[in-house]
Measured scan of single mutants.
Amino acid sequence: GTVKVQGITIKVPNPDKAYKIAKKLAKKYNLTVTRKGNTIKVE
């Protein structure tokens, strides 16, 4: 899958794990995490 952070896309082998990490970071930096299948977008 991929993770998008402010325009940066990161390929990740485990979208579930990445999503959990993204959620933690999002809370810390007051961002929104959206997930569509293997693509995770943080904005």
Rank of each mutant, 00 (worst) to 15 (best):
K28Y: 15
A26M: 06
T39N: 08
L25T: 00
N14A: 03
Y19R: 07
D16G: 08
P13T: 13
E43L: 08
D16N: 09
N38M: 04
T9K: 07
V5K: 06
I8F: 07
K17Y: 14
G7R: 07
N30S: 05
K17S: 12
Y19N: 03
G7M: 08
V3R: 06
D16Q: 07
I10V: 10
K17W: 14
G7I: 13
R35Q: 04
E43Y: 11
K11T: 11
K41C: 15
Q6D: 11
L25S: 00
G1Q: 06
E43D: 06
N38L: 03
A22Q: 00
K28M: 12
T32F: 04
K27Y: 11
V33Y: 00
N38A: 05
K41R: 10
D16K: 10
V12K: 01
V42R: 01
D16C: 13
I10M: 05
N14S: 09
G37D: 05
K41E: 14
K41T: 15
K28G: 04
N38E: 04
E43W: 11
P15A: 14
T34W: 07
K23V: 13
Y29K: 04
Y19M: 09
V42P: 00
L31R: 01
A22V: 13
V12M: 06
K24E: 10
V42K: 01
T2E: 12
P13Q: 11
I21T: 04
K41G: 03
T2G: 05
T39Q: 09
V33M: 02
A18N: 00
T32A: 06
T34M: 04
G7C: 15
K24A: 12
L31K: 05
K20R: 10
V12G: 03
A22C: 13
N14L: 07
K20W: 12
A18S: 02
L31H: 06
K36T: 12
T2P: 05
A18L: 12
K28R: 10
N30Q: 08
Y19E: 08
D16F: 08
K27F: 05
T32R: 08
K24D: 07
T9E: 10
G1D: 05
V12T: 06
I10S: 01
N14Q: 02
I21C: 15
L25H: 01
A18C: 15
I10L: 06
A18I: 13
K27R: 09
V3I: 11
K20I: 14
I21E: 06
A26N: 00
T34R: 05
T9G: 03
A26I: 08
Y29H: 09
V42T: 03
Y29P: 01
K11S: 12
L25D: 00
K36W: 07
I10G: 04
P13Y: 09
P13K: 13
K11W: 15
K4H: 13
K17H: 08
K41Q: 11
Y19A: 06
P15M: 13
T2D: 05
G7W: 09
K24V: 09
V5Q: 05
I8P: 01
K23Y: 03
K28V: 12
G7E: 04
K36C: 13
V5M: 10
V12F: 10
V5Y: 14
K11L: 13
V42Q: 01
G1I: 11
G1W: 13
V3E: 04
Q6T: 10
V12W: 08
V12S: 04
K17M: 12
T32Y: 07
A26C: 11
Q6K: 10
Q6S: 11
R35E: 02
G7F: 09
N38Q: 06
V5T: 06
K4I: 15
K36S: 11
T39E: 12
G1T: 07
Y19C: 13
K4Y: 12
K11F: 14
E43G: 09
I10Q: 01
L31G: 03
P13S: 13
L31I: 12
Y29L: 11
L25N: 00
N30P: 07
E43P: 01
K20L: 12
Y19F: 10
D16H: 07
V5D: 03
Q6N: 13
A26E: 09
K36I: 14
V42M: 06
Q6R: 14
A18P: 00
G37S: 03
A22M: 14
A26S: 06
K4S: 12
K4M: 14
I8H: 09
K23S: 08
A26L: 11
L31S: 02
L25P: 00
A22S: 03
K36Q: 13
K11Y: 14
L31D: 02
Y29A: 04
I40A: 00
K23F: 04
K4N: 09
K17G: 04
T32V: 13
Y19I: 08
K27C: 04
E43V: 13
I21G: 02
V3S: 05
V42W: 03
E43M: 10
P13D: 13
K17T: 09
T2K: 11
P13W: 14
E43T: 12
N38R: 07
I10C: 15
K11M: 12
N30M: 07
G1R: 05
Y29M: 07
G1A: 08
K28W: 15
R35L: 06
T9Q: 06
K23D: 03
K17V: 11
G37Q: 03
T34K: 08
K28Q: 10
V33N: 00
N14E: 03
K23C: 15
K27Q: 10
V5L: 12
K4E: 14
G7A: 08
I8W: 07
G37T: 00
K17N: 07
I10R: 04
K24T: 08
K20Q: 13
T9F: 07
N14C: 15
K41P: 00
K28P: 00
K17Q: 12
V33Q: 00
N38D: 07
V33R: 00
K28F: 14
Y29S: 03
D16I: 05
V33H: 00
N14V: 04
Y29Q: 02
T39K: 05
N30I: 04
E43I: 12
A18H: 01
K24R: 11
N14I: 05
G37M: 01
K11D: 08
D16Y: 08
P13N: 13
A26D: 00
G37E: 03
P13R: 13
R35N: 02
